[in-house]
Computed example of a mutant assay.
Amino acid sequence: MRKLVLLLITIFLASCGASSSKPSGTNALYEVLTQQADGGASIRFFEILSDEKEIAMLQNDEHLKSKIKPNDIQTCNFIVLNMGEKTAAGYKIEIESAVETDKNIVITVKEIAPKAGSTASQEITTPYCVVKINSKKEIIIK
């Protein structure tokens, strides 16, 4: 229940930010639907959404609904990556790599911190990323 509440909060907060996406080909294993420096959850967690009801919540988000097709529910999984609360601007979370095996998809997550000595503002941020995985195979996050 707690994860569901956090997911709903994340989705709500995601609707407050602009979205950006990584260019991807039609056969790409994954697509970044949105990646924001702020607007995620205050705790660090990764959530895999594969259930129809969970994915439907993403479709209700103003910034994501145009990026999720109706048939994606049957053919895709989604991942919400929350970096948690950070005390400075400049943090970012993203997928470093995605490898498909016979049985699953292995996702490696990369967390990026501001460069040492940078003049990042001292504000509380909550970086997050929402990713569409173009497969229904089991997902392993590293």
Results as ranks from 00 to 15, higher is better:
D61T: 07
K3A: 10
V106I: 13
I140D: 00
N77C: 11
E100K: 14
S118I: 08
S135I: 05
N104W: 00
A41H: 14
I73N: 08
K22M: 12
V32I: 14
L58Y: 05
K53N: 11
L29P: 05
L64Q: 11
S118H: 09
S121I: 04
K65W: 04
C16N: 05
P127R: 07
I105H: 02
T126L: 04
E111I: 11
K65D: 01
D38K: 05
P23T: 11
Q36M: 13
G90T: 10
I43F: 14
N60K: 12
K67Y: 08
L6K: 14
G39R: 10
K53E: 11
E111D: 09
I79W: 02
T101S: 14
A14M: 10
T108R: 12
S24N: 12
K53T: 12
K110R: 13
S42L: 12
T26S: 11
E94W: 03
A18V: 08
Q36I: 10
I55G: 09
M57G: 00
S97K: 15
K137G: 01
I95F: 06
V109N: 01
I141A: 00
D102T: 11
F46E: 13
F46S: 07
C16V: 05
Y30T: 02
P127A: 02
L8V: 05
K3Q: 08
L64V: 07
H63P: 00
G84T: 03
Q35V: 07
G117T: 09
K142A: 04
G90R: 09
C129L: 03
Y91K: 08
S21W: 04
A116I: 07
I107T: 00
K67M: 09
K92G: 01
I140V: 15
F78Y: 13
A98R: 09
I11S: 02
R2A: 08
K92Y: 13
P70I: 01
S66Q: 07
N104S: 13
T119K: 08
S15N: 15
I95T: 05
E31A: 14
L7S: 05
I73F: 06
Y91C: 04
Q36A: 11
C129H: 03
T75H: 03
D61V: 12
V109E: 00
E85S: 11
S24L: 02
V32N: 10
T26C: 03
K132Y: 04
N77R: 15
H63W: 05
I68G: 08
K110W: 02
L49N: 07
T34S: 14
T119L: 08
V32K: 08
